[in-house]
């Protein structure tokens, strides 16, 4: 039997997750920008979309500069030591398990509270906004997790 090789090294995995987190966040923001006028019951326009998305992108770029500066400082402190290894992947698994479990319980609690409040129906656009909020929150918490490594 040939030995099973790991398909990805921790460094490759780090790059993959970094790209995935960026795509995740941008996709979440893009879809939220599309859904926000629907949710607010306002007419959709390209100018309005660009204004909203551009503002968020500018904010993201500002946050990116802070993050890169923080990483540069860490690199100066740690030298050439790797910042991710097998334990980081293990911690990521634990983090995702806790995050998804919390999300599931919170969603169940939210539905029960709404039901107790006497709400019988929820608009799909509201659900859409909540969903994008969750996507963005998960993306941000993933980014925060990797910053803490």
């Amino acid at each position: 039997m040939t030995p099973k090789r790991n398909p990805l090294t921790p460094q490759q995995l780090k790059q993959l997750i970094r790209i995935g987190a960026i795509v995740w966040l941008v996709a979440g923001l893009l879809l939220a920008c599309l859904a926000l006028p629907l949710w607010a019951d306002q007419p959709t326009s390209l100018a309005g979309f660009l204004e909203l998305f551009g503002g968020w992108l500018a904010g993201g770029a500002g946050a990116g500069v802070i993050v890169l500066g923080w990483r540069w400082l860490l690199r100066r402190k740690n030298g050439t030591l790797p910042s991710i290894d097998e334990r980081s992947v293990h911690l990521l698994g634990n983090f995702l398990l806790i995050a998804l479990t919390t999300l599931f319980v919170a969603c169940c609690a939210a539905v029960l509270v709404l039901l107790a409040m006497g709400i019988q129906a929820v608009a799909t656009t509201t659900l859409l906004m909540v969903l994008f909020g969750v996507i963005i929150l998960l993306g941000l918490s993933l980014a925060g997790f990797f910053l803490s490594l």
Binding site: G79, T80, P82, S83, D85, E86, R87, S88
Partner: peptide, 10 residues
Amino acid sequence: AADLNITRQT
């Protein structure tokens, strides 16, 4: 950590 390519935290 440098020799084994792992983090010091590990």
